[in-house]
Design a protein around this nucleic acid. Structure first.
Length: 460
RNA sequence: GGCGGCGUAGCCAAGUGGUAAGGCAGCGCUCUGCAAAAGCGCUAUUCAUCGGUUCAAAUCCGGUCGCCGCCUCCA
């Protein structure tokens, strides 16, 4: 398996630290608002990567942080005039609801910054102790000058560094990279914690170093996030962690490109920032959203449009209809060895595409090829064949996660009755009545299909 | 100003030296009481453009045009 490592800006063959196991850290949400589809492009991609590793036989330990204290969350709490924890909890709950809807596997741990203050304090103490950090006006700063590797991840020219120029906020001067804050001295209107170096609260970056270290160790395999995190967030994480521990922090950095909406950057002023709830209110299927988000390469800008969502939904329908047909296969007989071989080849091709820098488009193409190959032979399939194909799709779906499970609810007795009535009408050539019954069921979301094998139905 | 990316059919999107995957839409046909669904077939002599390297380029090199991202809050 190989993929693009931001650290080296090259495709690299993946080698885990401990055989068969992967430590994965993904930057989670700052819970000051509802996450939008752009955020979810990253989270869905991270989920895809994780699922593919699991599919490939690895045991993945996944940690996703929740930033529940920073400039933005504090600002929001003050705006609303409610306690910080109340605001953050609301958005954490919303976040988890969205994860469920998007069929994103749960992380092993969702550590919150506010619950790891002691870990951050001791990390800062180490940095002070080793001379990588300094105190100034009640705050503690990291000295970028002290770390010669600083700027490597973001590919920043060291001449643009501005050592000794400390920034207290998480906002950066674009002219030069500056020393960043590890611990912010107490300000009125902000929550604070006691510390040896003065009461205050953590800077933004320190939480990820402290929490990843706690749950994954000082050195782990993969760290992911959106491209915007490369600088300054991940650059700073590396600086903090490597200086404190005196060793490599992370082997592979994977970053997901942003998405735009109708070819324009999402922004509140353009009114094109969509949350999952916005999409749900428009009656859009979260699985179509997921399909759309994964279907183009993660290092390319994704243009999100409603037309694109429509296409994604249709593509998904093609798969679902295929599954529907397979489930209706009734013929007895043995499994066809040719089909087994075709399935096998397809599974390998799928794996090969995914293992090549997560080429989802290629992998999806492989799946549709198999569908295309089996569809014309549906009538010749045995139940065993159908089961094998269904099994194949199920396996792919453990990676793709675009087919929601457990659909077919049992038919209510009165619907069965209606179908029987309609059949009777059709036999008697009373097509007006037959069509009326069809229309009636359609209103209930039941679609009838008249096939040579009798009437079949499915939910719309 | 610094760093980086992209331009492949009506739309979405793979392919990165060996002669254009796949999905959506469209058209034709099959099936059918009708319809829906499904299936089959067709749909890029061509990969923004100009030039170069090569037996061979969408793929490599150089120029041009166009679009975009990050460097600022942000996934």
């Amino acid at each position: 398996m190989r993929f693009f490592n931001t650290l080296t800006r090259r495709l690299e063959e993946f080698r885990e630290i401990e055989k068969g196991k992967i430590g994965l850290y993904t930057c989670g949400p700052t819970v000051y608002d509802y996450p939008h589809i752009g955020n979810y492009r990253s989270y869905v991609f991270e989920d895809l990567v994780k699922r593919f590793f699991i599919f490939s036989g690895y045991r993945v330990r996944h940690v996703m942080n929740i930033t529940d204290i920073d400039d933005k969350t504090i600002r929001k709490a003050n705006e609303l005039g409610v306690p910080l924890a109340e605001v953050t909890q609301k958005f954490i709950d919303a976040f988890h609801g969205d994860l469920r809807r998007l069929n994103i596997l749960k992380a092993d741990v969702y550590p919150r910054a506010t619950e790891h203050i002691p870990e951050m304090l001791s990390l800062i103490a180490v940095l002070l102790d080793k001379g990588f950090a300094y105190k100034k006006d009640g705050s503690v700063y990291f000295s970028i000058e002290s770390f010669k590797e600083y700027g490597r991840l973001a590919n920043i020219d060291r001449d643009k560094l501005k050592p000794g120029a400390a920034v207290d906020s998480d906002e950066y001067d674009k002219e030069a990279v500056q020393d960043f804050v590890l611990w912010k001295g107490r300000k009125s209107g902000e929550p604070s914690w006691p510390a040896a170096f003065g009461e205050g609260r953590p800077g933004w970056h320190i939480e990820c170093s402290a929490m990843s270290m706690k749950y994954l160790g000082a050195h782990f395999d993969i760290h992911m996030g959106g491209v915007d995190n490369i600088f300054p967030h991940h650059e700073n994480e590396i600086a903090q962690s490597e200086c404190a521990n005196g060793r490599t922090f992370v082997n592979y950095w994977l970053h997901c490109q942003h998405l735009v909406v109708d070819n324009r950057k999402m922004s509140k002023s353009l009114g094109n920032v969509y949350t999952m709830d916005d999409l749900r209110q428009r009656g859009l299927d979260p699985m179509a959203v997921r399909y759309l988000l994964i279907s183009s390469h993660y290092r390319k800008l994704l243009n999100f449009t409603f037309a694109g969502l429509e296409m994604a939904g249709q593509a998904l329908n093609r798969i679902k209809n295929f599954i529907f047909s397979l489930k209706n296969v009734r013929a007895e007989g043995d499994a066809d060895p040719d089909l087994c071989a075709a399935i096998d080849a397809s599974l390998n091709a799928f794996r090969k595409n995914m293992a090549d820098d997560f080429n989802v488009s290629g992998a999806l193409g492989v799946m549709f090829d198999l569908i295309h190959e089996v569809n014309p032979r549906l009538n010749a399939l045995s139940q065993k064949d159908a089961a094998n194909v269904l099994d194949y799709l199920q396996r792919l779906n453990t990676v793709l996660g675009v087919l929601d499970q457990g659909e077919s609810a049992p038919l209510a007795a009165d619907i069965e009755e209606k179908i029987a009535q309609r059949e009777k009408a059709r036999k008697g050539k009373d097509f007006a009545l037959a069509d009326a019954i069809r229309a009636e069921l359609k209103k209930q979301g039941i679609v009838l299909l008249d096939t040579p094998d009798g009437v079949k139905w499915k939910k719309e």
